[in-house]
């Protein structure tokens, strides 16, 4: 690995000051599972590495009064897996943060790191999108918020400006009769990058019989994770019993803009966008119904 200076900062302001001083040669180090691999392989370079894990508030998971969550940037996936509220009230997010990497990656990797790495295949981003998460960004001119949906702009690129740091994610409280799920497809059963992924969040009404709102986001089938508004538009207000899964799959496939690469083919990814969306929708509906009534038996997927 190339030589660099290491700065374990203890406040956000320190990090901002270093970023301002060192400019493009500075890189933020969070869990390090992407950055260090990339530095070793020469895919990124750094003269200064700014470790933000020792900033106390960035390791906090705050439960907000409105039922939402303030998630510090340095919180690891492992911490979240042990967080009861995260597991139970944010199921789509839990699905995603629980399967990033293996156990040893989980011990280091952070959700914010996964987001800022901006891989089209990032597992957490589709789930963050359907959970309507906001990204809290500190910069030279103060704090700003952007929705996750608009955060990634291209593979490895985001809306972050030079000198900015993502300090937290704000997860809004789930509404009543809410369910969400994230599913991905990988060729092995662990230790793989998603060939395709789908997150679905539903808000039901009428005691689980009607869609109030539906949000769908796809991963690894476009240059960035994609929000699929067409499915939400199609389903909002309609009875759950009348939904055509073939139609949903078809809408998901139509929204996918995949490529063929070493991890999968274009046709496979387009097809999987449909398969995974339907499967995630079923789980999300199930979870939404369970949130108000005893768990119904779900048909085999």
């Amino acid at each position: 690995m190339q030589a660099f200076d290491y700065h374990p900062v203890s406040t956000v302001n320190e990090a901002l000051a270093l970023l301002a001083r060192e400019g493009a040669g500075a890189r933020l180090l969070n869990g390090g599972t992407d950055l260090l691999a990339q530095l070793k392989e020469g895919r990124r370079s750094a003269n200064h590495v700014i470790d933000i894990k020792r900033i106390p508030e960035l390791s906090e998971v705050r439960e907000l009064q409105d039922g939402g969550i303030w998630l510090g940037a340095a919180v690891t996936c492992r911490t979240l897996s042990h967080h009861a509220v995260w597991r139970e009230r944010f199921p789509g997010l839990h699905d995603a943060t629980h399967l990033i990497g293996g156990v040893q990656i989980q011990g280091r990797a952070t959700v914010v790191g996964n987001l800022c790495n901006a891989s089209p295949a990032a597992d957490s981003i589709p789930a963050l999108i359907v959970h309507r998460v906001q990204v809290c960004i500190a910069g030279p001119s103060g704090l700003r918020r952007v929705p996750v949906e608009g955060f990634c702009t291209a593979p490895g690129r985001t809306v972050l400006l030079p000198g900015e740091v993502v300090v937290a994610l704000e997860v809004p409280p789930p509404p009543a009769e809410f369910g969400a799920a994230y599913l991905r497809f990988i060729p092995r059963n662990e230790m793989d990058i998603a060939v395709a992924g789908a997150a679905v969040a539903v808000e039901l009404g009428g005691e689980g019989s009607r869609f109030q709102s539906v949000r769908v986001a796809l991963g690894a089938v476009g240059p960035t994770p994609l929000a699929v508004d067409a499915i939400g538009a199609r389903l909002a207000g309609r009875p759950v019993a009348e939904v055509s899964l073939d139609e949903i799959a078809s809408l998901a496939r139509a929204a996918a803009r995949p490529i063929s690469d070493l991890r999968g083919t274009l046709a496979q990814r387009r097809h999987l966008a449909g398969v995974l969306t339907v499967r995630a929708l079923r789980v999300a509906i199930d979870r939404a119904r369970r949130s108000v009534t005893p768990p119904p038996l779900s048909p085999p997927l």
């Binding site: 590495v49 156990v103 280091r108």
Partner: peptide, 20 residues
């Protein structure tokens, strides 16, 4: 793999100075 404060991690993906 090693245990850092009891947590399983890959020692190849950690800077040594991070374990200060």
């Amino acid at each position: 793999n090693v245990l850092l404060d009891g947590v399983l991690v890959n020692s190849c993906l950690i800077l040594a100075l991070e374990v200060q």
